[in-house]
């Protein structure tokens, strides 16, 4: 049985029903469920499958394909650190390492307070502000250790869940 709140369940069912082809909603549904469960848990995969009349495997085929669908638990803030060649030129490695060291996590891990996950990421399209990172849909550029500290501090203080594609 579904463990989703009934209103969310209805909302999603309506969203699927409104689509010309239910399958085209699969990524949107995964984003919503990901937001609800914190990440795309096994349960979320099964929920999505039931909503879309797909098998869990069919959902899994997609969920594991995309890098913005998280099949493992993540922190409240997912920090995508750009490792594109331009950011690399500006010593991207040190941004990534600095973040990992600062938060005490390895790549993909969740910080002890459950707040942060650091992931390397494909070029984010913020090359004019290299080195850059993306946190819950917001870009941060021209990074250096001081700036990173300030950003983390700010995020810790004011948590806001602003966008669906984190």
């Amino acid at each position: 049985m579904s463990t989703l709140p009934p209103e969310l369940q209805t909302e999603l069912a309506q969203q699927v029903a409104a689509a010309d082809h239910p399958r085209e909603q699969v990524i949107n549904i995964m984003y919503v469920l990901q937001k609800h469960y914190g990440y795309m848990s096994d349960e979320a995969v099964e929920e999505a499958a039931a909503l879309l009349d797909m098998t869990p495997l069919e959902v899994e085929e997609l969920a594991t394909f995309y890098d913005f669908i998280y099949r493992e638990a993540v922190g409240k803030f997912v920090i995508h650190v750009c490792d594109g060649v331009v950011c690399w030129m500006f010593h991207e490695g040190s941004v990534f390492d600095y973040l990992c060291e600062k938060l005490g996590v390895c790549a993909g891990g969740v910080s002890a307070d459950g707040m942060f996950t650091v992931l390397p990421s494909a070029c984010l399209g913020f090359c004019d502000h290299a080195p850059a990172m993306l946190i819950n849909g917001v870009f941060y550029g021209h990074l250096n250790p001081e700036k990173i500290d300030a950003i983390l501090e700010k995020l810790r203080r004011e948590y806001c869940d602003l966008v669906i594609c984190r």
Partner: peptide
């Protein structure tokens, strides 16, 4: 390989 890894 971890099939569920969040790493890209």
């Amino acid at each position: 390989v971890n099939r569920r890894s969040n790493l890209p």
